[in-house]
Simulated assay, not measured.
Amino acid sequence: MRRQVLGAAVVALVMGGCAATGPATTGPATTGPATTGSAAPGPTGPAATTAFNPTDVAWLQLVVPMTENALAAARLAPDHSASARVRSAAAAFASSNEKVLTRLRAARDRAGLPASDVHSGHRMPGMVTPADLVALRTDHGAEFDRRLVALLRAHAGQLVVLARGEQASGADAETRALSREIGTEATQEAEALAQTA
Rank of each mutant, 00 (worst) to 15 (best):
L104C: 02
A107Y: 05
A131C: 04
R105W: 01
T129G: 02
V118P: 04
A131L: 11
P125K: 14
R110A: 15
H140I: 11
E98P: 03
A131S: 13
M127Y: 12
D117P: 00
A107N: 07
F144N: 03
R137E: 14
S120F: 07
L136Y: 06
P125G: 08
R146P: 06
D145T: 09
L104H: 05
V134D: 13
G126D: 06
G126M: 05
R105Q: 13
D132F: 05
V100D: 07
N97C: 07
R103T: 11
N97W: 08
D145R: 12
V134F: 11
H140R: 15
A142S: 14
G126T: 06
P114H: 04
T129N: 04
V100C: 00
R103D: 13
E98N: 08
L101E: 05
S120E: 14
D132V: 01
T102P: 04
G112Q: 02
S116N: 11
E143F: 08
T138D: 12
K99D: 11
F144Q: 02
A106P: 00
R110N: 09
P114I: 02
N97V: 07
T138K: 14
V100Y: 01
R105I: 06
S116Y: 03
R105E: 12
T129D: 04
M124K: 12
R105C: 03
A135K: 13
P125W: 08
L136E: 03
R103W: 00
H122D: 12
L133P: 03
P125N: 10
H119P: 01
L136W: 05
T138Q: 13
V100S: 07
T129M: 09
P130F: 00
V128H: 06
P125I: 09
R105T: 06
H122R: 12
